[in-house]
Simulated assay, not measured.
Amino acid sequence: MSSPTTPAPLVDTGLRPTDDRAWVREAIRKLRADATRTSDTHLIKVHLPGCDRVDLYLKDESTHPTGSLKHRLARSLFLYGLCNGVIGPRTTVVEASSGSTAVSEAHFARMLGVPFVAVMASTTSPAKIALIEREGGRCHLVDDPTAVYAEARRVADAAGGVYLDQFSNAERATDWRGNNNIAESIFEQMSMEEHPVPAWIVVGAGTGGTSATIGRFVRYQALDSRVCVVDPEHSAFLPAWQGDGEARLEPSRIEGIGRARLEPSFLPLVVDRMLGVPDCASIAAMRFLRERTGISAGPSTGTNIYGALRLAAEMEASGERGSIVSLVCDRGDRYDETYNSDEWVAAKGHDLARYAGVLASAWDDGLWTG
């Protein structure tokens, strides 16, 4: 009969090393200070001559230091990484992005003094690469655009770093209950307006994080606002909301929104309505907004405007009074060689004239003819 095994003595391993805790505290302070400086971007009231019953407001996210709505997401992703212990003073930070998210993440990486690598398709324009490099980031190019996610993870693993993965982590990195998020900022700024609780909040979806944050917040606060997500052509979000979760064969042609696959951060159940917006309509609307208000913004803002005007005309027609809030997502000067260029638009075959009358009718007369 064998004798019982004597248990091994417990080993006191002590506390986890804390050499980096002071750096983490300082890094979090810097990010929270940035939030204090920049979170309350301007909320602009836009007069719609044809919609006397409806007030339209645009929250101008282009005024962030990195020029876009993605400034909020990038800051949240860095805070998420710091508070989960995966970002330290020597961590290489990696993202799969060639656009505004990479620009903003490069900005915060430089603020904290850590390396940043953006993984993107080799077809990315030199102008986009220059924006990321200007903020201190390094661009890693791949020939197959569908491989950027796997390659970003490989690059992070090889460097002993972290892949931020905006498309999976956007909805979980933002505190949707409040704490300086975009939803809380919108409702605080609306509190003194005639219709402080918007009938609709209109946003596009790239990662899905913004619509998830706003949709959760209005439910948590027991508000009557409804969330409308506007979606460009070739995007998987609208079909998924309708019950078709299959990936699309082509990517979105409207930068910043629309995805060829259903991203984990997009939460269909917190979205009250979705509107598909033709790409030509998005481009026409960004130009229309500049002509009527002087606000120069990118094509995803055009998608927002097209959807917001449709909803305003519907409210006007039904006699409903209230307000609509949408976003200016980024600055228009980023698109001077593309969406703002008549030559580029013509080369892509976009017929903007067909939507000019639709926009003018909604704006001037409150009638939707689309």
Rank of each mutant, 00 (worst) to 15 (best):
R219C: 02
S225I: 00
E233A: 14
I283Q: 04
R253V: 01
D224T: 11
G258F: 02
A205N: 03
A260F: 10
A260C: 05
V230N: 06
T210N: 08
P268G: 07
P264A: 14
R248E: 07
I254E: 01
S225E: 01
L238C: 02
C280S: 14
G243D: 04
E263V: 12
H234A: 13
P232E: 02
E233W: 01
P264H: 14
E250W: 05
S225F: 04
R253A: 10
Y220P: 00
E246S: 15
G243Y: 09
H234N: 15
F237V: 03
E263M: 14
G245C: 08
G208D: 10
S265T: 08
A236V: 06
R216S: 06
L238F: 09
M274R: 09
M274D: 03
A240F: 14
L262S: 10
S265D: 04
F237D: 03
R216P: 00
V227N: 04
P251W: 01
A222Y: 14
E250H: 10
Q221V: 00
V271T: 13
V218Y: 09
R259Y: 04
V227S: 06
L267G: 00
E250K: 12
M274T: 11
R248G: 01
V218K: 13
E246Q: 15
A205S: 14
D279Q: 05
R273K: 14
G208N: 11
R248V: 00
R261P: 00
G206V: 04
V271Y: 02
D279L: 07
A240R: 10
H234D: 14
F266E: 08
E246Y: 11
Y220D: 08
G276W: 07
G245R: 13
R253D: 06
A205I: 07
V227H: 02
A284Y: 08
C228E: 07
I283M: 10
A240H: 15
G206R: 07
L223M: 14
A205W: 03
P264S: 12
V230G: 06
L275F: 10
L249I: 01
S252I: 00
R226K: 15
D231A: 04
W241Q: 03
G215K: 02
S252Q: 02
C228G: 06
I214W: 03
D244R: 13
D244W: 12
L223W: 12
I283Y: 15
A240C: 12
R273A: 10
D224K: 15
T207E: 09
G258M: 02
E233D: 14
R216A: 05
A222F: 14
G245L: 09
